[in-house]
């Protein structure tokens, strides 16, 4: 469980995080979306006890990060967006060091480490020096490291950044497995469609403020107030244009650029009204073969939400 109450971080006059209020229930996968410098990493650093907030409080499993940082550290697995490894260590030694740092006894580590390596598909690299691992492997090793003390909460900052598509898919599979294990996961990513697939909830942050949060579909619905509708006809395009122009909730009507048999417009009505509109159009003798709503993905959601926000 993660909760932040009016969490604020200021650097001089610059506000990196502005009264952030978040509540993530146990077992939820929460996707944190925002452009670079929006405040994602700042939030993650505070939750990982690496940064003290200017004001406000944050709780991990009920422990205040500023008052009981040691307890918080035992409950979180943190993976920073940029990280290094100790090159002189072998994969097993690397994990062994962190296992020991979390106070896991040696005989338990000997059982645990092969299991973790198995989970992140690195068993075949257990005796290699960390130095020679590829970026994707290092990323997975770091994820294994963050799991070594079996934390209930995972804080993963851009775990898929800089990975090639294949490595990204592997990372996603591992995260799905972690989700099935019931971990609370707070994850940030630039790659929005990937987040949508995995997350129960997402939060959109811009300029240190949370501008939207909720389930992926509810956020998409919030933004679908103006749907884009494409209507394809077999004949009488002009007649259709005249008909739709007279309808009250339609705006921006135009012929489709690519297909000259299709018209496109914005519609602000509800789903029920949309059904009525189609019925009326058909009963008016329009030769409609397709009446469809444009699919918006998270990318569009993100662009829509952050529209007009000054990123400079």
């Amino acid at each position: 469980m993660i909760e932040t109450v009016n969490l604020t971080k200021k650097y001089g006059s610059f506000t990196a995080l502005d009264s952030l209020n978040l509540k993530i229930e146990k077992g939820t996968v929460f996707g944190f979306v925002g452009h670079n410098g929006a405040g994602k990493s700042t939030t993650f650093s505070i939750l990982s006890t690496l940064l003290a907030p200017t004001s406000g409080t944050a709780y991990v499993n009920g422990y205040d990060v500023t008052r009981e940082p040691k307890k918080v550290r035992n409950h979180i697995g943190y993976m920073p967006d940029f990280f290094g490894v100790y090159d002189q260590f072998k994969t097993v030694e690397y994990l062994d060091f962190y296992g020991a740092s979390y106070g896991i006894p040696k005989h338990e580590r000997e059982i645990l480490i092969p299991q973790l390596l198995e989970l992140v598909n690195l068993s075949h690299k257990k005796n290699e020096y960390v130095d020679v691992l590829s970026r994707g492997m290092k990323q997975r090793l770091c994820l294994a490291r963050s799991l070594i003390h079996d934390p209930e909460v995972l804080i993963l900052d851009e775990p898929a950044s800089g990975l090639d598509p294949r490595a990204r898919i592997e990372m996603r599979e591992i995260l799905k497995e972690l989700k099935s294990m019931g971990k609370t996961i707070l994850i940030s990513s630039h790659i929005l469609p990937e987040l949508a697939e995995m997350c129960d909830e997402i939060g959109v942050i811009t300029n240190g403020r949370l501008v939207a949060s909720g389930s992926v579909t509810s956020i998409q619905n919030q933004l679908k107030a103006n749907k884009i509708i494409h209507v394809k006809l077999t004949a009488d395009l002009e007649k259709a244009i005249v008909f739709f122009e007279d309808e009250p909730k339609i705006s921006n009507l135009s012929k489709n650029d690519k297909h000259d048999d299709t018209i496109t417009f914005s519609y602000s009505g509800t789903d029920v009204e949309q059904v009525e509109l189609l019925k009326k159009a058909v009963s008016n003798g329009l030769q409609i073969i397709s009446f469809g709503q444009e699919e918006t993905d998270l990318e569009d959601v993100f662009l829509e939400i952050t529209k007009g926000v000054d990123f400079s």
């Binding site: 650093s45 990982s48 040691k70 550290r73 035992n74 979180i76 990280f83 490894v85 740092s101 979390y102």
Partner: peptide, 14 residues
């Protein structure tokens, strides 16, 4: 500089 400090500091090592 090697970006290993953050991880070390999130362990319970005092």
């Amino acid at each position: 500089e090697r970006q290993t400090l953050n991880i070390l500091l999130t362990t319970p090592q005092s």
